[in-house]
Amino acid sequence: MTDKERFVPDEGLTPASTAIPAAGELEEFTRPPRSQWLNVWDQFKHHKGAMAGGILFLVIVLTVFVGPWLWPLDATTIDIRARNQGPSLAHPFGTDQLGRDTFARMMAGGRTSVSVGIAAMLLALGLGSLIGVLAGFFRRLDGPLMRLTDLFLALPLLPLLLVMMLLFREPLNAAFGPEQGIFILIVTAIGVTSWMPTARIVRGDVLALKEREFVLAARSIGTTNTKLIARHILPNVLSPIMVSATLGIATAIITESALSFLGLGFPPDYPTWGRLLFDATDYLQQYPERVFWPGMAISLTVLSVNYLGDGLRDALDPRIRGR
């Protein structure tokens, strides 16, 4: 920005987003103060993308968690006479090479994939944001935490997972049972190996933010570090975190499938979307619908979370509230 340029009056270049509220809304200023979260919710409600994403996400979650109770066929029931069938009334999504109902498998798979995806994403996001904020905000922690990040970035994923399996599978199985145990192990494995980009990104933003005027101002009136981080830093790094979240879900679902087909994941009779997609890839030419369903389910889940994230971000940004 150069100082030499003379001040020129606004020529209507300002986009609508920065326009001052019209006079008709004056009433708004005289009303009693509302809670901040109510405002956020108001904004969120009017965000078309967010509502669409939210509803879609709810539908997906309901289908995969409640659906299996309503659908008569089980994901593991083998009906060998009905194998490789196309969509029909009895099997709306068709059947696979062993005659298992694809719709039931999609729902069962979704339950695993959605839970793993969200849990692993939250873990990675939590870890990443925490380390990113700490490293960016406290100069003394920056060195050690970022070297730790470098270390984790450098570790080869596959041997790391093998070691985790070796060390923790049996104890977790004993403590939580085989299914819960492997779930915890997989979520931890994915979370622990994918927080680093979030941490680097958040730290980069925090480094820039903490030199901004409003942070200086807040500090000068004696705001504590905790408050400073919670009220001023975190809301301002929300948008990269949201992007990381959406990308993180997709990565977690796909990584889970990679683990499963390497023999490091769930038992083989446990369908997941990633695994259904992988198994169907060989049959791409014969039965294209088999890749379509899991591919679409993963994409839709990621899209819905993305729009949710967009809406949340917009709703939390006071500058564009009321648009």
Binding site: F278, I298, V302
Partner: peptide, 11 residues
Amino acid sequence: AMVGFSVPPFF
């Protein structure tokens, strides 16, 4: 972008 990112390269 979202579909592109959700579809793994093995597929």
